Simulated scan of single mutants.
Amino acid sequence: MSILIHDEPLPYVPRLAERPLTAMTLVVIHCTELPDLATARAYGERVLHEDGTGNSGHYYIDRDGTISRYVPENRIAHHVRGHNAHTLGIELVNRGRWPHWWDSRHQTMTEPYPPAQIDALCALLGRLRASLPRLAAIAGHEDLDTALVPASDDPSLRVPRKRDPGPLFPWARLQASGLERIVATRPL
């Protein structure tokens, strides 16, 4: 299946470390936990690190299935703590817990992933499997970043730092990708 990818590199892409395409072994699925793609882009453009870069996935898929590439595969994007060098990040536009990420009363993620978005994700995964020789596994952000943080409404409570892509993500749809699913080591 042919897919259209809109190349929209972030301004700091030349500052991101390079890597060989053979370095990537794992795809990490995220949800933006933001209201729309424009807000996600603005977050991605923020410079947060001393080297002049910020946090961003490689690919973003909007609710209608539109795919944008913000960071090329041969660059290391900052999208999951401790795993960036060997991973490729795919962000799905979804509100998640926005805007109360760490409020203990707002931990339920209620926005479903539209079929067009998941169809585009499946097509992108097929393309990536064909072009990245060592890509073998897939995980959710919540599976790799299992840290708990104090709740914003009650610091005596702890909530997951990351919950994306969350309980409504249709993992079964990705079985045909041939990627081995890595599962969280803590209960969510």
Rank of each mutant, 00 (worst) to 15 (best):
R46I: 01
P14G: 12
P165D: 09
S2Q: 14
L188R: 09
R19K: 08
A85C: 10
E50L: 14
V47R: 10
P112R: 10
H30C: 01
M24P: 00
L92S: 06
E50Y: 08
L37R: 05
H58A: 03
R173A: 15
N74A: 04
Y43P: 00
I76A: 07
S156E: 03
I138C: 06
D7E: 13
V27T: 08
I61A: 12
V80H: 02
L48E: 13
W102K: 04
S104Q: 05
A136R: 14
L4K: 14
D64G: 12
C31W: 01
L21G: 10
T110I: 13
C31D: 11
P14N: 13
D143W: 04
E91L: 05
P160W: 07
A176I: 09
D153G: 06
K162R: 12
L21V: 08
I3M: 12
E91C: 04
A139R: 02
E50V: 11
P115S: 11
F169V: 15
G54C: 11
I138N: 07
D62Q: 13
P14E: 13
P160D: 12
R81F: 08
S177Q: 09
D51V: 10
L37K: 05
R186Q: 08
I76F: 06
M109P: 03
A137C: 09
L179P: 05
G89T: 01
L125D: 03
E8P: 00
H49R: 13
N74T: 09
V13T: 14
V27Q: 02
L124E: 03
I118G: 08
R46W: 01
T110E: 09
L48G: 05
D153H: 07
L157W: 02
A139D: 07
W98I: 01
T66A: 15
L148M: 12
F169M: 14
